[in-house]
Amino acid sequence: MRKEIIYQMGNTYRDDLNVYGYYFGKGEKSACIVGAMRGNEVQQMYVCSQLVKTLKRLEERGAFVSGNEVLVIPSVNHSSMNIGKRFWAVDNTDINRMFPGYDQGETTQRIAAGVFDVVQHYSYGIQFPSFYMPGDFIPHVRMMETGFQNPSLANLFGLPYVVIRKPKPVDTTTLNYNWQIWDTSAFSIYTNATDRIDEASAKQAVASVLRFLVRMGILRYTSHSGYIATVLHEEDLRNVKSDAAGICRRLAEPGEEVQRGDVLAEVLDPLEGEVISRILSPAGGILFFAHNGPLVMEGTIVFKIIKRLHQ
C-alpha cells in the first residue's frame, strides 16, 4: 500500500486540507473508490477505511492480480466533517456538484478538478454518496442513464438491487456522471446510513466491492456470490407521501414486503399525541426507502415502494 496526498489546499486559520489516496497493486488503472465527499458522510468514509484495511492485508498476502492498480480515497471533505457541516465549510457549496472541476476556478471547483485529475482514467469508478433526504435505503447500486451505463456490470457487486435513473441537469456536475462521460464505468453504492455508522451495511458494502474486484479479475479472493440483483428503473419506485404534518412513527422497515392497505406509519399531533393520519401502502411490493426523521412535513416522501415485487 502506498499512501499519498492526492490534493492539498492551504488554509490560514486551520490546518491544510490534505486529501489522501491509498494505492494498491501496480499497473493499469483498474478501479478507483471514493468515499465521503460531504462532511456528514461518516458511513461512506467508514466503509472506505474498512476497505483500505482489508485491501492492505490482501495485498500483503499477494492477492492482487499483477498489472492492476486500485486507488481508494476515503474522504475528500474532512474540513467540513470536522466542524459538522455537510457542504464546503466556507461557502456551503457541494464538491459533488462541481465536477469535472476547474483548476483556475472557485475553491470547490479547484478541489473537484484536483480530485478528478487523479481519479480519471480508471476502468471502474465506485463512489459512496448519500441522498439529500434523511432516510434508510435497501443497499443498492445506482447508475445514471448516460448512454454509457452498464447494468450487467453493476450486477457483479452482488447487492440486492441495481437502480437506474435518468440524470437531471443538476446531476451533470457529479463525479459519477463525469466518470461515465470520460470513459470510466461508474457506480454509486448506497448503504443504509450516512451520518451514523451501520456496521451491517458497511460490511455488506465492503464485501460487495471486494466481490466486484474479484469478478473483474483484479483481486484473488474467495467471496460469497451475493445476490443476483433485481434491476429497477427509478420510475418503478412509487412515492408514498405523508398527507399530514407532525411526529412520524414508522411501523415498517426498508426491505419489508407489504400489501396494499397496510399501515406503514402513523403521524401524531406533535402537541397532543393523538394519531392524526395513518400512512397506508398504496400498492403491494417491497419497501425500498423509508424516511427516518422523527418529524414530517405535509407531502414528505415517507416511503418508496418497489411495486409488485415479492421477496
Binding site: G246, I247, L271, L295, V296, M297, E298
Partner: peptide, 11 residues
C-alpha cells in the same frame, strides 16, 4: 402552502 411539523405552514 405546505404543513410544517409543528403548528406552522410554509407559505
Amino acid at each position: 402552502s405546505v404543513g410544517l411539523p409543528v403548528d406552522e405552514r410554509l407559505q
